[in-house]
Design a protein around this nucleic acid. Structure first.
Length: 373
DNA sequence: AAAACCCACAACCGCGATCGG
DNA sequence: GCCGATCGCGGTTGTGGGTTT
């Protein structure tokens, strides 16, 4: 593919823009919109490449941009989203009105990353350094999989991963009253956050009316799907499942001793502990795909009453969901040689890779356009 | 006062994705 | 369907102002 010649080759101006150049860009945009940035500098009387002008406009001159410091709420959201989806700055920035991906990226690189490090938290894994070091003591060998998550997502995109409508619909129906849209790239669902608050805390308390937290809420909801699917409820989640009637109040359940601070959803002050990801590396129950699938949407009566669907429809949703989860995991295992056995037997790195891929499957619909045609 | 260092953030680069003829 | 042009994204670098020595 032919690349656009660099500014160097065309002897165009580089470096910081002057006020005069900004004015020309703004004047051009107001007159011609932003239909063609390649011809823009010439028409605007600028000796810069179109890309440079576009970036200047996108990252600095847009009228809706905020130029003041990040608030603690924004800070919190960035960290939480980074913990959930990594350095997808564009996606994160979409949840922060008036901020660009460049803003968020710079803020992360200059402030938040260091802040987390100073707190003893690894900004990449969002786990305490001490734990990482401890885990490294258990390294027994290198992972067999060499593909990383970036290529993995593309592999998944082209893999035979079908039945989108069933996947999204069924996953959506698994929690009564929780409006989690797993299919659309547009992630803003105004009612999600209150529902999640209610769900996680057992009551509806004062809500942060910042709708940008909806993505986070949905990520959390999706993570709940993961948690439920892998049958590793911890003590913070599980009581709420029972309290809210999502699980039968029958037998006592085993629960991990680890806390999942990610699920705490305070609307005001936050603790840095909140940004620690749950420790999935500790020995836990095996991923009992088949078992937990059968018991997952257990409170069928409640779900049916809530959603007005028949038992047969619900069973179909459940089985479709199971089928698609199995398909996705099967693709992952085939393409990436991922071991789905007990994480307790894996090395730290293997477990990390497995965990990332597992998360990817659940977040796939957030990160990508629908894969199906 | 000046050099060295630090920091924030604007700008650039290169790549993959998408568009459109 | 092909291919060049353009866009969007994430990683990295450059620049300028502030602080420290």
């Amino acid at each position: 593919m032919v690349r656009i010649p660099s500014c160097d080759k065309l002897n165009l101006k580089r470096g910081l823009c002057t006020a005069e150049e900004d004015a020309k860009v703004l004047a051009y945009v107001s007159k011609h919109r932003t239909s063609n940035w390649t011809s823009a500098p010439k028409k605007a009387g600028l000796r810069r490449c179109g890309k440079s002008c576009r970036l200047r406009r996108t990252n600095y001159l847009r009228p809706d941009l905020k130029h003041h410091n990040f608030t603690s709420q924004e800070e919190e959201l960035i960290i939480r989203l980074h913990a959930a989806i990594g350095s997808r700055w564009a996606i994160i920035a979409q949840q922060l009105p008036g901020r660009t991906d460049n803003d968020v990226k710079n803020y992360w690189n200059t402030k938040l990353r260091r802040k987390l490090s100073e707190m003893g938290i690894d900004p990449i894994t969002h786990k305490p350094f001490s734990q990482i070091l401890a885990d490294y003591g258990n390294i027994g060998g290198l992972p067999r999989s060499t593909k990383r998550i970036g290529s993995l997502s593309r592999d998944l995109k082209t893999s035979a991963y079908m039945k989108p409508e069933h996947y999204s619909n069924s996953a959506q129906g698994l929690f009564k009253g929780i409006d989690v849209d797993l299919s659309t790239p547009s992630l803003l669902l105004p009612e999600t956050e209150p529902v999640m608050d209610k769900f996680m805390n057992g009551n509806v308390h004062q809500l942060n009316n910042n709708n940008s937290l909806n993505l986070l809420a949905q990520l959390q909801a999706m993570q709940l799907v993961t948690e439920a699917s892998y049958c590793t409820f911890n003590e913070q989640i599980q009581p709420n499942f029972y309290a809210q009637g999502y699980l039968p109040s029958s037998s006592s359940s085993s629960s991990s001793s680890t806390t999942t601070a990610t699920y705490r959803h305070s609307s005001s002050a936050f603790s840095w502990q909140d940004f620690l990801l749950e420790d999935s590396f500790l020995p836990s129950e095996l991923p009992r795909e088949h078992e937990n699938i059968a018991e997952f949407p257990v409170n069928q009566t409640a779900c049916q009453a809530e959603n007005g669907i028949s038992k047969e429809e619900m069973n179909k949703e459940i089985s479709d969901y199971q089928y698609n989860r199995f398909e996705a995991m099967h693709c992952l295992a085939e393409n990436n040689d991922i071991e789905t056995s007990s994480s307790a037997e894996n090395t730290f790195i293997e477990t990390l890779l497995h965990q990332e891929d597992k998360i990817l499957v659940d977040f796939l619909n957030l990160l990508e356009e629908p894969l199906y045609y």
